[in-house]
C-alpha cells in the first residue's frame, strides 16, 4: 500500500484556460512539504482542484491519497477519506454555530445510526481551542462570521485538529496573520506532525517556514514544480526573490 499524497502530471483548467500544466509531486506520510511560488503560479488552483471545487476541470493526471484516487471522489468523500484543505479565505456560514458545524463534520464520519458523543466532543473541542488560544465563545458564534483574519485561520486549524486528516493542505494560512497568530497557528500544525500524517503547505512568504520547518520545499511557477530542494531553498528564494525563479530557474 502506498503511503503518500501523490500528484502526477496534473493538468487543470478554469474557464477553459489551463492553470496547472503537468504538476508532479509526492508528500510521503510523516513529511512536511512546502510549495512556494509567485502570485499567479497556480498554487491556490492546486489546492482547490485537490478539494474538488467545481470551477476547476481536471484534464489529465491523478492525485492519489495512499491508494485512493482522490479525483474520482465527491468533495465530501475526499474529506472523509482523510484529505483536508485549510482555506485561504474560509467561507462564512450565517446562523450555523461553530460547534454544530464541527459536530456535523464528525457525525458525517460515523456509521449510520451512531451519534456523536456530545460530552466527549465538547471536552475535546475545548481542549483544542485552549491549545489554539481560542475563546470558548467561538463555539456558539456562527462559522467565521465576524471573525478577524487571524480568528478565521485559527478556526481552520481547529477544524483540522478535530478532523485529524491523513494529509492536510494549508493554502496561504499565513496571509493576513500577525506574528503572534502565526506562531499559534504554526504550533497547532507542529503538534499534529506525526509519522501518520503528511502536510503540504502553500505559501508566498518564507516567514511561515521559520515556524513550521519543512522537510522539502518545492518552487512552483506557471502550473508546474520547477525546483525541489531542502528547507534552505526557502531561504534562498526569500533572499533572491521570485525574479530569480522566473529568470534563472525556468527552463528556456
Amino acid at each position: 500500500m502506498s503511503q503518500s499524497l501523490k500528484i502526477e502530471n496534473l493538468h487543470a483548467t478554469v474557464d477553459g484556460i489551463e492553470i496547472l500544466k503537468g504538476l508532479t509531486l509526492e508528500v510521503p506520510k510523516g513529511e512536511v512539504h512546502a510549495i512556494m511560488g509567485p502570485n499567479g503560479s497556480g498554487k491556490s488552483t492546486l489546492s482547490k482542484v485537490m478539494a474538488g471545487h467545481e470551477d476547476y476541470t481536471v484534464t489529465a493526471g491523478s492525485v492519489m491519497l495512499d491508494d485512493i484516487n482522490l479525483l474520482e471522489l465527491e468533495i465530501d468523500e475526499r474529506s472523509r477519506a482523510g484529505f483536508f484543505l485549510a482555506f485561504q479565505y474560509p467561507h462564512e456560514i450565517p446562523g450555523v454555530s461553530n460547534a454544530n458545524f464541527l459536530r456535523a463534520a464528525r457525525q458525517a464520519r460515523l456509521p449510520k445510526g451512531e451519534e456523536v458523543d456530545a460530552v466527549a466532543f465538547y471536552k475535546e473541542m475545548y481542549l483544542k481551542m485552549d491549545e489554539l488560544g481560542m475563546d470558548r465563545k467561538f463555539t456558539g458564534r456562527s462559522v467565521n462570521e465576524g471573525f478577524s483574519g487571524g480568528e478565521k485561520k485559527r478556526n481552520e486549524i481547529l477544524q483540522m485538529m478535530m478532523l485529524e486528516p491523513k494529509y492536510a493542505v494549508l493554502d496561504e494560512t499565513d496571509s493576513g496573520l500577525d506574528i503572534d497568530a502565526l506562531k499559534v497557528v504554526a504550533e497547532g500544525v507542529n503538534t499534529m506532525r506525526s509519522p501518520e500524517r503528511g502536510f503540504l503547505i502553500i505559501t508566498h512568504y518564507q516567514r511561515l517556514l521559520d515556524y513550521i520547518v519543512p522537510d522539502v520545499v518545492h518552487v512552483m511557477f506557471d502550473g508546474r514544480i520547477i525546483k525541489t530542494g531542502g528547507k534552505d531553498l526557502a531561504l534562498e528564494l526569500e533572499e533572491k526573490g521570485y525574479d530569480w525563479v522566473t529568470k534563472e530557474l525556468v527552463p528556456a
Binding site: 474538488g52 465530501d76 484543505l85 467561507h91 456560514i93 458545524f101 463534520a105
Partner: peptide
Amino acid sequence: IFYLQARGIPA
C-alpha cells in the same frame, strides 16, 4: 455548500 462538503458533510 462547498465549504461544508470540504469538511466531509454530504451536499
